[in-house]
Design a protein around this nucleic acid. Structure first.
Length: 562
RNA sequence: AGCCUCGUAGUGUAAUGGUAGCACAACAGAUUCUGAUUCUGUUUGUCAAGGUUCGAAUCCUUGCGAGGCUACCA
């Protein structure tokens, strides 16, 4: 299996963007390819951003071009250095490198200002005094044309002077804006004299108080692309209607290159919400513990949950790039995850809901170090010693009193294999007054040491995991499940928060782990045999806490649910 | 309602006028010291109607359906 190169292992077909790039290279339009990932530093990155990151940085790698990381920081009211730092960390964690090409739109404020003056001089922009409400009514509607602002015919000199006064702080916020002079009757609303500069008397996280006017997205993005010689500017579908504007600016300004905007569909996943606004709401209303809550689809949350960057990249490589608005089954993501974790995680034993087992024919003071393989399919993982003695713990649901025939685990009179140890037969159940099972009395067969079949050829259907009660270490384990209980929380009646899964987190505090886990480092990943993949929590370092990344596939449990 | 974009198994995608494939999911079975992994097999599809063509998922027309767009957000 090859996690890293889905495109070469699966087929030679390319998505429509790579086909355009091939054509541009073949026609000589470009001799090298430059892309960019342009986040606004106003929130944390999520799995949807990962799709864009993998696309942009992936293309740069495949075509031996380069990909810039550019912060689109034109709105000081919302942006912050904290987000810049987290975004950089997340992109690096995902496995990509922008080298020296770390850029900020704010680096271009002076150039953008000069280009705005260029537009004014050409009669292509004007200062407008209309209020927000007035401008809305002048804009027209989807079906009716707008009408010209009374300020649309101001002279170049007046506009230049007014724009400079805006820059100098002579007007209040909202008093005036600079607008492109295009066409108030254009069927595309974005072309009806869009605002390109507004007065914002706000401190900017990088330029401080140097500016009190800021260019907006439309006037910034394409020009920044042109300044950085971006060849293909890849963005999501909601910018489709902005493309004519993007091109209008490129065509009306003396820009150094001609980037091309291409749109693709953003990622949607079942059982999750992806909008920054909604994720922020979950954090602010404390419905989750923070941006890095392991249930969040943020990269920081997924990292803490135990996702590997490889699995995310692999997933992004398989979902494809199209213009069709679709929703990907989260099972596809989990498949990539399990696939990679299966290959890379050492196996250990952990009992999450313990029930005590006493091996009555095992010597009271004896302890054996059983040898267990760390990976059944890969000897390079080596072996470890696991202590075995008279008192053990097994999983409560690995025992059943009135077990059906197809139950291959423990029940009175039945024999199972304790992984890497012995065949164990359950002889007796001990209960408390309430009738709860509190202990199992069992016997072992010394001829099965190591878990091997005995000379008499006896076989056993089930193998279960266990830990030594005398040597086990205590830990808390957090069992995470999907955050929402419906496939499309956005599509239901009422608020998406009405559909939070009440069982998305179960905290188990009486878990017993094999002693080797005492040395687990922050973020280390393991397979707890027969249960799933877990990782040591990276935030909670006081106590031993493990997060369940994803359970193993469970055909028994599936059958039970039917 | 105007403009833009898009409709291929349950889901995500491929086929660029020439046998509708792949992955995930689901379902069966084999193997297994993890009811995992692995392996084998099965089910399920071109939005609709016309047209062009020897031949249409692909080109044309019409219809239907979905998404986006009326911030001094990005």
């Amino acid at each position: 299996m090859n996690q890293e190169e889905p495109s070469t292992t699966e087929s030679d077909s390319k998505d429509f963007i790579r086909e355009i790039i091939d054509q541009d290279l073949a026609s000589g339009k470009h001799s090298s390819i430059v892309t960019r990932f342009p986040p606004e530093p106003n929130g944390y990155l999520h799995i949807g951003h990962a799709k864009s990151i993998c696309l942009n940085f992936g293309i740069a790698q495949e075509y031996e071009g380069r990909c810039h990381l550019r912060f689109d920081d034109t709105n000081p009211a919302k942006e912050d250095q904290e987000y810049v730092d987290s975004i950089k960390a997340d992109v690096r964690w995902l496995g990509f490198d922008w080298n020296e090409h770390l850029h900020f739109s704010s680096d271009y404020f002076q150039q953008l200002y000069d280009w705005a003056r260029h537009l004014i001089q050409a009669g292509n922009a004007y200062v407008d005094d209309l209020s927000v409400e007035e401008m809305r009514s002048y804009r027209g509607s989807l079906t009716e044309p707008g009408k010209n602002s009374p300020n649309r015919e101001r002279s170049v000199e007046d506009n230049l002077a007014l724009f400079e006064a805006m820059k100098n702080g002579d007007f209040d916020e909202g008093a005036k804006v600079l607008r492109a002079r295009i066409d108030m009757a254009h069927p595309n609303l974005n072309m009806r004299d869009p605002v390109i500069y507004r007065i914002l008397k706000k401190h900017h996280h990088r330029t401080g108080d140097q500016w009190c006017i800021y260019p907006n997205y439309d006037f910034t993005h394409g020009e920044s692309d042109a300044l950085e010689n971006i060849t293909h500017s890849l963005c999501t579908l909601e910018f489709e209607n902005h493309r004519p504007l993007y091109e209008w600016f490129i065509n009306n300004l003396p820009v150094p290159s001609q980037p091309r905007q291409i749109e693709f569909a953003r990622l949607n996943l079942t059982y999750t919400v992806m909008s920054k606004r909604k994720l922020l709401q979950l954090v602010e209303e404390q419905l989750v513990s923070g941006w890095d809550d392991p249930r969040m689809p943020t990269l920081s949350g997924m990292r803490r949950r135990g996702y590997t960057p490889e699995s995310i990249r692999h997933f992004c490589g398989r979902i494809g790039i199209t213009k069709f608005n679709s929703t990907t089954d989260v099972a596809l993501l989990e498949h990539s995850l399990r696939d990679h974790l299966n290959e890379t995680s050492p196996r250990v034993m952990a009992v999450l809901d313990p029930i005590k087992v006493v091996i009555t024919n095992y010597p009271e003071d004896q302890v054996e170090e059983m040898e267990a393989a760390n990976h059944p399919g890969d000897e390079s993982f080596g072996k470890r010693k696991v202590p075995f003695c008279r008192e053990l713990y097994i999983e409560r649901n690995d025992f059943m009193e009135d077990a059906p025939r197809k139950f291959f685990r423990m029940s009175v009179g039945r024999e199972v294999r304790f992984r890497a140890a012995y065949f164990i037969k359950c002889e007796e159940v001990i209960k408390n007054e309430a009738g709860d099972v509190i202990e199992l009395r069992c016997t072992y067969d010394p001829e099965t040491r190591g878990g091997n079949n005995p000379p008499d050829g006896r076989k056993v259907k089930g193998t279960i995991h266990w830990v030594s009660a005398r040597h086990a270490i205590d830990a808390q384990v957090r069992i995470y499940d999907r955050l929402f209980s419906v496939e499309n929380p956005d599509g239901e009646e009422g608020s998406f928060t009405d559909y939070l899964n009440p069982d998305s987190l179960k905290t188990l505090s009486n878990c017993k782990l094999e002693p080797s886990l005492a040395e687990a480092g922050s973020g280390d990943r393991f397979q707890f045999e027969r249960l799933g993949y877990f990782c040591r929590d990276s935030e909670d370092s006081e106590q031993l806490v493990f997060n369940r990344t994803v359970p193993l596939r469970d055909s028994w449990g599936k059958q039970q649910r039917k």
